[in-house]
């Protein structure tokens, strides 16, 4: 038994996810994603709970989890800002904009604000290069960034 339990709704969702695959283990990323989105972090207890669902060892879950950048072992903010710094955004001045964003949030890149509202990460190409410079906040893409637009976007988030 792990100290982490899935809610009734999550159990239903998990059943749906498992039905997609002939082998349970394929549900690894979907289950990790489910936990990450609900908890904003993947705790060791959650890894144990996932391992029980997929009939594998918790160490295996941890090994897979650690490979992917979208899973976090420290709780991230309510708003996860992924700021693209790859070539098309670099050519369009993203470095200064990232600096501006960090300054506005009063954190360093990679950190979370003390109220746990924002986490700011430097991100590799997010496949929206024609709208560079761009960032992704939770599930939304924001392109054509300027300092003013970034301020407006951040101020508009509750």
């Amino acid at each position: 038994m792990s100290g982490f339990t899935f809610s009734e709704n999550q159990e239903k969702e998990i059943a749906g996810i498992l039905s997609k695959y002939p082998f349970k283990k394929s549900a690894m990323l979907p289950l990790l994603t489910l936990v990450q989105r609900a908890e904003r972090v993947i705790s060791p207890e959650a890894m144990v709970a996932i391992s029980e669902k997929l009939d594998c060892s918790p160490a295996y879950v941890q090994s897979v989890m650690s490979f992917y950048t979208m899973y976090h072992t420290e709780k991230v903010g309510k708003y996860m800002i992924l700021f693209c710094i790859n070539i098309s955004c670099q050519l369009n001045g993203c470095d200064k904009l990232l600096e501006h964003t960090a300054k506005k949030l009063n954190i360093k890149v990679g950190e979370t604000t003390s109220d746990e509202k924002f986490t700011l990460h430097r991100e590799e190409c997010l496949a929206d290069c024609t709208n560079a410079p761009m960032m992704r906040i939770n599930d939304t893409y924001y392109g054509g960034l300027t300092e003013q637009r970034i301020d407006q976007i951040l101020d508009s988030l509750d």
Binding site: F23, S26, M28, T33, Y68
Partner: peptide
């Protein structure tokens, strides 16, 4: 099926490992 942030999973055999629930 959603990945979780790994460029290498665009390489076809890494994609398969990822889809099977492993490291990409």
């Amino acid at each position: 099926h959603l990945g979780a942030g790994a460029y290498i999973c665009g390489e076809e055999s890494a994609l398969l490992n990822s889809l099977e629930g492993g490291r990409g």
